[in-house]
Structure formats: C-alpha cells, structure tokens
Design a protein around this nucleic acid. Structure first.
Lengths: 228, 228
DNA sequence: GAAAACACGTGATAC
DNA sequence: TGTATCACGTGTTTT
C-alpha cells in the first residue's frame, strides 16, 4: 500500500505522510490505486473538496432563497423556523385551494385543460329553430373575442346568449348559437357541428402549441351581466 | 493545560491521549475547565454528540415531512429537487393568491378581519322611512343566523334585503334594515344605530375570543339568490 | 446551561 | 466522467 492513494473520490480516507500517500487500512479500495506525490494529492484533494463545498453552498442558497420568498407570503412568519414556515405554507395552500374550490362550485371557473365541446340542444326538422351549445376553455388573449366573433359569423350563426368567465389568465365560455338569417335551410347539422368544433378548436386550442399566444400577465375578469 | 478539558460543548476541539485530556493549543477556552478521566470525557462526548445528531435528524425529518406534504399539492413535482419544488410552491401560491384576489374584486368575499359597520342610508324625519345598512364580517358558525334574526327582531327592525357570502369558513353579510311595524315613531336613530352596533358586535366579534365558537371544518357557501 | 436552529463540509449516489 | 442532489454529523449561535 505504500506510495499509493485512491483517487480524489476518497479524499478523507487517505493518510498523508511525509511524501507518500497511504490508504487507511480499514478503507476498501474501489478504484485503481494511483501513485502520486503528496503535493499533487493534496492539490487535487483540496480542489475537489473546494468545488464540492462551493456547489453545496450554491444549493443551500437556492433553497434558502425560495424559503425567504415564501416567508414574504406568510404574514407573521418572521421568527418561524424552517419547518414551521413550511407548515404554514402547507396550511396557506390548503386554505387557498379550498377557497378556489368553493368558488368553482358556484362560478364555473375555467380549468387548466384546453377543451372545446359542441352540443346540439334542440333537435328540430327545420334548421332555423336548432340551438347549439358551444363551450370552450383556453388561455385568455386579447384577440380571442374578435376571432370568435368572425368564426361565428362565417358559419352563419347568431349568438343567442353567452356566459364567459376569465380567471387567472384563463377563460371559459359557453355560447348559445343558432343559424342566422343568411343560413341555408338545408344545412346538415352534423357537418355544422363538426365545422364549429374545428373552427373553435383552431381558435381556442391550437394557439397554445404555437408561439402565437401571448402570455399576458394582465388578467381580465368577465362575468355574466347578472353578476355585477 | 494538562489533565483538563473544556466540557462537552467542545467535543472535537480536545485532544485525548492515554488517560488525560488536553485542549488543543489554538482553541480558546470559554468554559471552566473540568478535570476528568479519558473514559468519562469520551463517554460524555459521545453522549452529547449522539443527542446532538439525533436532534438534528429530527429537525431534518420535520422539514422533509413538510416538503413531501407540499410535493403532494404540486402536480408533476415528483422528480423535482428541493429548490425546484419550493419554486413551484412559490408560483402556485402566487397563482392562487392572484385568483382569489381577482374573485374578491367582483364577489365581496369575507376578509380575515372581524368587523361590524352600521350606516344610515336614508335620512328622514320620520323613523319609518329610515334605512340602515348593517355590515359584518366574522367566522362562520351554525347559530349565527338565528342569533342575527333574534337581534334584528328585538330591535324592532325588518330585513329589506341581504347580501351574504360565506367563503373558507368566514362569512360576510350586508343587511338593509328599517324599523318594523312595532317600532315606536320617536326612536332616536343614533341610539338605534348604537344598539345595533353593540348587538351585532356581540354576535359577530365577541364569540371569536371566547371558547364559545366552534371551528367547523364544514364550510357553507351562501350567495345572493341571483347567483345560483 | 440545555435544547433548538442554522450553516457548513463531507460521503454517498444518480445521471 | 464530472456534476448535481441528498443525508449526515458537527461547530456555532441563540434562546
């Protein structure tokens, strides 16, 4: 074992004497032993140890930075230790989650999932009397309404009623639609539904995968008239 | 310095030889030095070290337990390291806080602060025509409504309208009140307001400091009729 | 002065 | 391989 050491993977398990390096007797050697001078060994050992401890410090700092950010969210969390702070955060999140869930029960708030559904509400022989319920849920963006309006007009439909809710940058809408005065009487309802679904999906769902969408921090809030 | 050590506060800064304990020369001694045998020193040192490391383990476990609780709240947080997890928690809290703030803009949600305010809306010579706006915000509890009803009746008042919102275990209410048919015509409005404030405060605010209040996890949600 | 809380450096491990 | 994360024990400070 004389004049040998076990790579910088085991810096602390080696014993350094005058100008040679020995493995401590109880340490198993997993790596090929490399002969080197005491100076070279110490150099490598110190460099490795330094970078290791510096990396660990960076990691601790990252965690602690997030902890202080969280501390700002929790009132009276000054003086709390880390575990207590995290406990408060848990309670806080639970509370907020509960509140938004309660709200969602009565307010039909938008979900995180993009979706478009078309329903045929009133089955009629004549097209003029039919009623389509078109629902969508997607990221909110400024041009959404004009696009919807144009699409509805192009399909020769008319908005009979709408219920729109925007919350947290997302938007959920339900439109009641029926054929307008320009609509032909012999339009096939199934193909109209299909067209509506395709057009709405293009507006509400496709943009989220392209870079077209603008993630606006400015959040609008729309509620049906009777809410205000 | 011979035959002395520096209490178990400095377990690692002492040098133990055959049967005596020496302070390392560069270590300042903050505590009275105590003579003891090598065995006694080691015993104390090991015991102190053990309890210290056990306490530290308990602390780490407490923190990590909260972290795993938080992990359950964040979808796709499996595989995240601690810093990233906390970052997601920060985002999540921000998001929820923003949503509830948005909601509060349109929904008059209850705040965390107990309060009662009485306003005199319509100034009239004759009592019968006067209109009082009584607002309160407090913890929700099952008996609240019957107590309010009784109080209003006792003051010879009549409910002309009400807007009540309960959210997250707290409740906010606004009552429009006017004197009822049993009310005397010459009642002093200021003393009526004062009485109303005292009675409402007793119902809405006092219970929170006594042990009378039941912290019910079951949360009710009331909204004005036109919301449903 | 004993316990609690924190930062630190280290060994182990995963990729 | 190096680089990142984690748990651990320790030194130090605070209460």
């Amino acid at each position: 074992m004389e004049n040998s050491f076990c790579s910088e993977y085991w810096p602390e398990t080696c014993y350094v004497n005058q100008d040679s390096v020995y493995l401590l007797p109880q340490v198993p050697c997993y790596f090929p032993q490399i002969q080197c001078s005491r100076e070279s060994f110490q150099e490598r050992r110190e460099s490795a140890s330094r970078s290791h401890s510096e990396a660990e410090k960076r990691r601790r700092d990252r965690i602690n930075a997030q902890l202080s950010t969280l501390r700002k969210f929790i009132p009276t969390s000054e003086k709390m230790d880390k575990a207590a702070l995290l406990g408060s955060v848990v309670d806080h999140v639970k509370d907020l989650k509960g509140k938004t869930a309660e709200i969602s029960k009565v307010l039909n708030t938008p979900s995180d999932i993009d979706e478009v559904t078309i329903e045929h509400l009133k089955e009629e022989e004549e097209n003029k009397g039919c009623l389509l319920k078109a629902s969508f849920c997607c990221e909110d963006r400024p041009e959404l309404f004009s696009e919807l309006q144009r699409a509805i007009k192009n399909l020769k439909l008319r908005v009979m009623g709408a219920d729109i809710t925007s919350l947290g940058g997302r938007i959920k809408g339900v439109f009641m639609l029926c054929p307008n005065e320009n609509s032909a009487n012999d339009v096939c309802m199934n193909s109209l539904k299909r067209s509506l679904r395709v057009v709405l999906s293009r507006i509400a769902i496709s943009p989220s995968t392209s870079n077209y969408r603008i993630k606006s921090k400015r959040q609008r809030f729309f509620l049906p008239a009777h809410f205000s």
